[in-house]
Design a binder for these strands. Sequence first.
RNA 1: GCCAAGGUGGCAGAGUCCGGCCGAACGCAGCGGCCUGCAGAGCCGCCCACCGCCGGUUCAAAUCCGGCCCUUGGCUCCA
Length: 505
Amino acid sequence: MTLYVTNTLTGETEPFEPQDPESVLLYYCGLTVSDPPHLGHARSWVHVDVMHRWLEHLGYEVRHVENFTDVNEKIVARVGEDDLGSDEASVAESYIERTLADMRSLNLLRAEVYPRVSEHVPEIVDLVETLVEKGYAYESNGSVYFDVTSFEEYGKLSNQELEEIESQGDPDERSEKRNPADFALWKAGPVDESAVHEHRHEGVDHGDDPPAGQTWESPWGEGRPGWHIECSAMSMTHLGETIDVHVGGRDLVFPHHENEIAQSEAATGREFARYWLHCELFQMDDEKMSSSLGNFVTVEEAVERYGTNALRTFLTAGSYNSTQLYSDETIAEAEERWDRLERAHESAVEALDSPAARTKVEDDELRSAVATAREEFTAAMNDDFNTREAQSALLSIATAVNKHLESGRSADADSTDEFDYRGLNRAVEALEELGGVLGLSFVGETDGTAGLAGDVVELVLDVRERERADGNYDRADELRDELEALGVEIQDTDEGPTYRLPSGE
RNA sequence: GCCAAGGUGGCAGAGUCCGGCCGAACGCAGCGGCCUGCAGAGCCGCCCACCGCCGGUUCAAAUCCGGCCCUUGGCUCCA
């Protein structure tokens, strides 16, 4: 079965064929490390992670590169805030640390490298020089601009005509630029103070010192790299002139990715990226979620609040390329779905480990449901990474397991239950393997019955069982309510009570 | 204004590229039943959609074509 992806460049869903049939060169436009990562970033990360995992599942070696933009006015604007650091580099460093920690907490596969702009200035300068030499860029007052009229295909990604783009240019900048749509490859002089001030948080005292932004030597004098050139330089440095997949947020299509294409293809004369995939954004009840609007939930808070698995279930609850509604309801719903998966997994494992699991019992319904679910999952993922469909395949395994356990459970207490060992085993394998593609992990997180907390809960449950045996249901219910108030989930079954500790305990 | 995406049940959200299996998936909520001391979980059944509007093509359209209305996003830093 072939993987199909929707390419922003063509607007079509196309069969995916990397240059090398064995490996995939994937570049993800990472973030500017000037604020704590929020759920919107997490959504894109998780989708890229799922792409990465699925490509590996299909047998490709995935060369995944993800940059950190550590040179930016917004970062300079944070200098002096809290304990972030006293210059641009150290502020960036603290946010990079935090970002990497957030990524780990989301169970993201590591990229091959996380290149930073500050480490690639020589490559950037080389690239800009090439563009100047080839006549695609020009120097003006120590800055270098890309001449958009020199690149015939300018606008092909965002599907816009140059005239239209020109009319949107900022008139204030016209003096230095030949065309209002030209964009900076290299910016002369020290960091732009007005830009820095614009991004400062209110009520923070930064003193009178000029902003501590880094500058580098260049053939055009002291200066800083422009925003777009970095990704071209880093992508080419680490993955070569033509990569297979370039992923980023929908909000980067124009101007960022459009400019990357122009400068890269102008410089090399070759195609820059073969497939452009764009992750859609979150939609809040009334507006989008974004750093600039400040209406976001940080990744740290979200992981803390919902746990990695429920959060990933939520983040993959829609296709990467359609907008997703963020609300208490949609999150709660995802939590329910994850719980359902986890409970089914748990009870399947319990049944497997019990003597009731027989090697000679066969439930065709269970087995074929698992096989069908595998097919559906694969078809869904191959269809442009349709994670929502993939989830529903996973859930159908949960239903099949529950159904099987229900039917194998014997009606009267004297005779024993009978479960299909092999069938259940396949179901568990499928849940773990396919769930793993979505980055869901059935081990560890909430399966906490060990430790002191577990012992204490068991003690309380013993007491409660005695109360129940004596018919003191009021007292028994009281104990259950109290445990539940602490986040411990109690469930009475034929084999006695079971419990689950809150995640993180 | 230009560009893009989208309008499917109470919510959310697939299906639209490759027309029929779609009176429409999965999940949540709701209702009835089984189970249970009760609750939860689970199981069974039910409820709610002629798929924005109008017209066309076709034996057949949520799916193709044309027009219209509306929503969201991008065009300034942004995943």
